[in-house]
Design a protein around this nucleic acid. Structure first.
Lengths: 216, 216
DNA sequence: TTAATAACTGACTGGTCAGTAATTTAGTAA
DNA sequence: TTACTAAATTACTGACCAGTCAGTTATTAA
């Protein structure tokens, strides 16, 4: 009838898995794993449920794929900074944290954090994989950036575990919040002053010497 | 047969609702709302599913009850502090934050945070209720404690919204983490140095004057 | 054009679980 | 003891949905 009708039954073998994974990710975040219907995932990806099963063995396999693909090797980039910015620990930490927000926290990948927190109990093995492959690695990176600062006498020497949590959790929580409470909290976009204030707070807490009030 | 068998079919009308709500809360946190079976909730509370329906109209009603009862009026206590500690803003903030951890974050109530984050998308009206009745109120309290410090010249003047997030999110995330990633992160108990380090970091960031290096 | 293949579809099935109703038993008062 | 009431249980039903499969259509090779 309608000549402008969307083309049905395209054959696009290559694109399907990524499209299905993206659809699944967004629905898992919105509704949770258990409450997400595979018919819905398929519909959002523009295919039928049967097609979904051509690419993924089961609902669990789909979940696993969504998490594991989202892990992307962003780490190389971050870890490279460790080498190039060894001489300026404060800038190193700032760029790592800002980088995480720009590349993960503020993007779709940020939703994976919320998803993993929600579903860890139901997928212990996926949670463990994600924990070892992402969380531990990321926290180690933060810890090393901080340790470099301590070595150089730029940062005070405190409990590493505690420090990296205090530094990172505000950003992480921000990402989680964004993907769950958006219905309540209107227009969850950060004010321009957010990062300046954030870094000012963090670094005042970390710096070994009190801020110079430049009195010559 | 077994003479020591647990007594079946006790009549304990008064205790049932609280026991069922507690069982439901723990299961909702572990498995999520959708993945939790009412038979299981009933079993954990030591009754049958039919009994559950004597006290709660539906699964949704059970969820709502769990959230709303958990809201408890802890606020009176916290808000009272605002009056009694007006003269020492730093101590005021410290006691409010420590109080939240002792009374909420480290207890079962902390699980409600994780639960609400996970299920907000599926229960917008409950999420809104919780947002207005708990989150907004709590954040306002924190904001006022900070504002008092600014008025007195003890704290630097920054964006209130940003500051209260930076101050509170580490604790909140800690509570959420505890209730989801416990399977991976072994023995999630905070080191003794956690709160001293936390407060030291926070207050260095907030204080208007640099730390006195006591040079007479 | 036609035949062969591979991507895709959607109706169907079997198991699961929220919610119900008939029945049993505990507690109580006469 | 007995009769009564209400708490609790058990067996059931109907909707829903993960996963399957027989059939359909797009694409390519001959």
């Amino acid at each position: 009838m309608s000549p402008l009708e969307v083309v049905r039954r395209q054959r696009r073998k290559e694109a399907r898995p990524a499209e299905l994974a993206a659809a699944a990710l967004s629905l898992f975040i919105e509704k949770g794993f258990a409450a997400t219907r595979l018919d819905e995932v398929a519909a959002r990806a523009g295919v039928s449920k049967g097609t979904l099963y051509l690419y993924f063995d089961s609902k669990d396999a789909l979940f696993k794929a969504v998490i594991e693909e989202g892990v992307v090797p962003l780490f190389e980039e971050f870890e490279a900074k460790l080498e190039t910015l060894r001489d300026d620990p404060e800038r190193l930490l700032r760029e790592i944290l800002q980088g995480w927000w720009d590349k993960v926290g503020s993007t779709d990948l940020g939703g994976i954090c919320k998803l993993m927190i929600s579903e860890a109990g139901n997928f212990p093995e996926v949670a463990r994989y994600h924990h070892d492959a992402v969380i531990v690695r990321w926290m180690a990176l933060l810890g090393r950036a901080y340790a470099i600062g301590v070595e150089r006498g730029v940062f005070r020497d405190m409990d590493v575990e505690t420090v990296r949590q205090l530094v990172f959790f505000p950003l992480l929580m921000q990402a989680v919040w964004k993907n769950s409470m958006s219905c309540c909290d209107e227009t969850r976009s950060l004010p321009d002053s957010y990062f300046p204030t954030y870094f000012e707070m963090i670094f005042r807490g970390l710096r070994a010497a009190p801020v110079q009030e430049s009195r010559p």
